[in-house]
Design a protein around this nucleic acid. Structure first.
Lengths: 141, 141
DNA sequence: TGCTTTCTTGACTTAATTAGTCGGGAATAT
DNA sequence: ATATTCCCGACTAATTAAGTCAAGAAAGCA
């Protein structure tokens, strides 16, 4: 639910792909430049994102990354859920913190944490990548 | 908005004080034991909490910590806001991540982050410490 | 007074997480 | 062939969070 720098880079990279949708594969170096993300780090991140089925890449001369779905079909929630991975079943599911809660089954905070989590993902799930594409970019296309 | 272990300890310590409200000062060692928090660490945390005006302490023989307000008058939001301190004005206010967003004024994510933040604090602000006190404890008092 | 208890302060150490780098290999188009 | 661009896995560095410690100061009690 809390988004690391890395996860924000991932979202921004997807937004960049959305901006250039329909113009063929986009090189990592272009995305890195446009979004001010360290190139080598972005390579790692995009590599991970391929596993989500949301993006794919082509190598060689006119290689690069591209979206596998339309920007309006990709929600922030689906990206975040993929990046954060499946929650560790050994940890208190409802806990906001990664550290584990010592009161496994009757944690007084459980309901609070789960309400917060739900509220956050409600917003993430109703926001698509298209919503994050700046208007200027849309006009340009 | 993301709560560290330390911040959860702080909330749990306040809940423990709420459970024992009206029974005089509670020793740090008692709270530490009841909530399974490392003693020395808890001393630091409670020391910080004194600055919030929500709790105070007395030293010596029958010393310990106690609440300055009723549990139902203390919201989780007020505690969290105090613990997290005033946001650094140099950072992107709306950013969820602590790292700063490179697109200062026209960050496409700004609205998303601020909606998330608002949603989370709405929940925090409508939850009081009393809401977190387990029923069993209330019955006992 | 002098002793014990308990908080107080601030600096310190350790552990965990996150961020970022690097070298070399593999596919692709010309 | 060869230039280009993604691919892979291991590595280092930076930052944040967690936790410890020692010495001191107030409060009560004998």
């Amino acid at each position: 639910m809390y988004l690391t720098q890395r996860n924000q880079y991932a979202l921004r990279a997807i937004v960049e792909l959305a901006i250039r949708v329909g113009k063929g594969p986009v090189k990592v170096s272009e995305i890195a430049k446009a979004q001010a993300i360290p190139l080598r780090f972005l390579e790692v991140i995009l590599g991970q994102l391929k596993g989500s089925g949301l993006v794919d890449a082509k190598r060689g001369y006119h290689g690069g990354y591209f979206l596998l779905r339309q920007p309006e079909e990709i929600t922030v929630g689906s990206v975040v859920r993929y990046l954060q991975g499946e929650p560790d079943p050994k940890e208190c599911q409802s806990c906001i913190s990664k550290m584990q809660c010592p009161f496994k089954n009757d944690c007084a905070f459980a309901s609070l944490w789960s309400r917060v989590n739900t509220a956050v993902f409600n917003i993430y799930d109703e926001t698509t990548i298209k919503d994050l594409v700046p208007d200027k970019s849309v006009a340009r296309s």
